[in-house]
Design a protein around this nucleic acid. Structure first.
Length: 480
DNA sequence: ATGTCC
């Protein structure tokens, strides 16, 4: 059935409510981005999400939306705790995939002469690639269970980082209510040697330089200035989160039947938030989210160590501090204002980033006057963006915004496009050093496979659901 | 995204 789509304004479109839809769809896109989306399955997925029980407000799509498992990637949907549901497909396989940004006291001129050495050292110290493991940190199951409950705090308490880091992570780096008893043996076994590894696909570790400032006041609050060197870590919960998602999809298929939930697509399988199955998923999901927070915290520690080795400077001189760490694949109970009423809601963000406004109590004190930092990676050839959350996002999108450039070519199409090209050499000509575990991953990740992230963040800023603070250019990229 | 199918 063809979707009925109408233009609201220069950056908003509505999927008109009809049939089994309980609410309308709201798409953030420019005219130009909408042209690329119009025939995408992803928009049907926005419509499908709108049929789910207890949805509050519209089924939302960000400008970087693309097709995902059940729910679109780049989607936001909020559900009432009594009438609504929670769905693993609304979070994604990589639970708490997220981005962490570190600033440094180094500038581009100081780093450039050591860049090759830095890339090699980072590549050696942070395992990358599918199935990558750390032989030096293989946890016992008992230790792993602690990680699942304590998240980034576990890493800090074991000598990897400091209390200051924890204050600059969404939720302080630990989601409450995690219950390791709800995790399968298989998930525990897969996760055991993967803590502190980067993974594959679009995950990366990048040394960058601050290229442009969009908002002086916010940049100053975040400690960013032109020519400064930063580091971005983009990874999630690895095979652990994948296995948790897989395990719970099975449970949710049964639960959907048990509670008589009609699904336009089996991949939307879910359970009422008020049911034992719904609560179990949230408690298991919290374990995977905490695994990912610990993962990014450990990698941060090895990034610091790598810089110390390469530059022969100590931590106090390098000042590699965490600006922020934010999730873009998660479902969380949050407090929002809906039609003038304060409500607790379960907000699913799948390929969407929390973007809380200035003054929000959950924004770290150092940033409270400017808004919560929002980290938007682009492709490895162009740039990434730092934004802050806005009141507009809080009112219109449950405090959410986009999460990246958005894939334009499938992985298969990207590999075809990359044929006959030496991507690593071509990027080296532009002064960007790539160190990758596998050639295939680099081909899948060619810059042309992605939309220009600038187009995406411009829509977000124009719509008022995010404010651009700075643009970051890649210098060295570690890939899976 | 993912020991890319236990």
């Amino acid at each position: 059935m063809a979707l009925k789509i109408e233009k609201i304004d220069d950056c908003r479109w509505r999927i008109i409510k009809e049939g089994a839809m309980r609410t309308e769809g709201l798409i953030f896109a420019s005219e130009q981005l909408m042209e690329t989306l119009r025939h995408e399955q992803a928009l049907e997925q926005v419509r499908n999400v709108a049929t789910l029980p207890g949805i509050v407000g519209p089924s939302i799509a960000m400008p970087d939306i693309h097709w995902g498992y059940g729910f679109p990637i780049g989607g936001v949907a909020a559900f009432d705790p009594d009438e609504g549901i929670v769905s693993p497909g609304g979070v994604g396989y990589d639970i708490n995939c997220g981005v962490r940004l570190l600033r440094s006291a180094l500038n581009v001129e100081e780093v450039r002469p050591h860049l090759k050495n830095l890339a090699d050292t980072l590549f050696r110290n942070v395992p990358a690639g599918i199935g990558s493991k750390r032989r030096d940190l293989k946890l016992t199951i008992a230790q792993e269970r602690q990680v699942l409950q304590q998240g980034a705090r576990w890493a800090v308490e074991h000598g990897f980082g400091n209390e200051e880091d924890l204050r600059h992570i969404e939720e302080g780096g630990v989601i409450p209510g995690a219950d390791p008893d709800l995790i399968s043996e298989r998930a525990l076994e897969r996760g055991r040697a993967q803590l502190g590894t980067l993974g594959s696909g679009n995950h990366f570790l990048e040394v960058q330089r601050v290229d442009q400032i969009g908002d002086e006041k916010a940049a100053e609050a975040l400690g960013l200035y032109p020519g400064q060197v930063t580091v971005t870590i983009h990874t999630g919960s690895r095979g652990f989160g994948y296995q948790v998602c897989d395990d719970y999809l099975r449970l949710m298929l049964r639960a959907s039947q048990k509670y008589g939930i009609e699904l336009p697509d089996r991949q939307l399988c879910c359970a009422p938030l008020s049911s034992p199955e719904g609560r179990q998923y949230l408690a298991a999901m919290a374990c995977a989210a905490n695994f990912a927070f610990a993962n990014r915290q450990l990698i941060t520690s090895w990034v610091r160590e790598s810089f110390e080795q390469v530059f022969g400077k100590n931590a106090a001189e390098l000042r590699l501090s965490v600006i922020y760490d934010v999730c873009h694949n998660i479902a969380k109970m949050e407090t929002h204002q809906v039609a003038g009423r304060t409500r607790r809601l379960c907000v699913h963000r799948k390929g969407a980033t929390r973007a809380f406004p200035p003054g929000h109590p959950e924004t770290p004190e150092a940033y409270r006057h400017v808004g919560q930092p929002v980290l938007i990676p682009g492709d490895m050839g162009r740039y990434s963006y730092v934004l802050v959350g806005t009141q507009g996002a809080f009112e219109e999108t449950f405090g959410s915004t986009c999460h990246g450039a958005g894939r334009m070519l499938s992985r298969h199409a990207a590999k075809k496009r990359a044929r006959g090209h030496n991507i690593v050499a071509e990027l080296a000509e532009q002064g960007i050093i790539i160190r990758a575990a596998g050639r295939a991953t680099v081909a899948e990740e060619i810059p042309e496979a992605y939309k220009d992230v600038m187009d995406v963040v411009n829509v977000v800023q124009q719509a008022g659901i995010g404010k651009i603070v700075a643009r970051l250019r890649p210098m060295a990229v570690i890939k899976g």
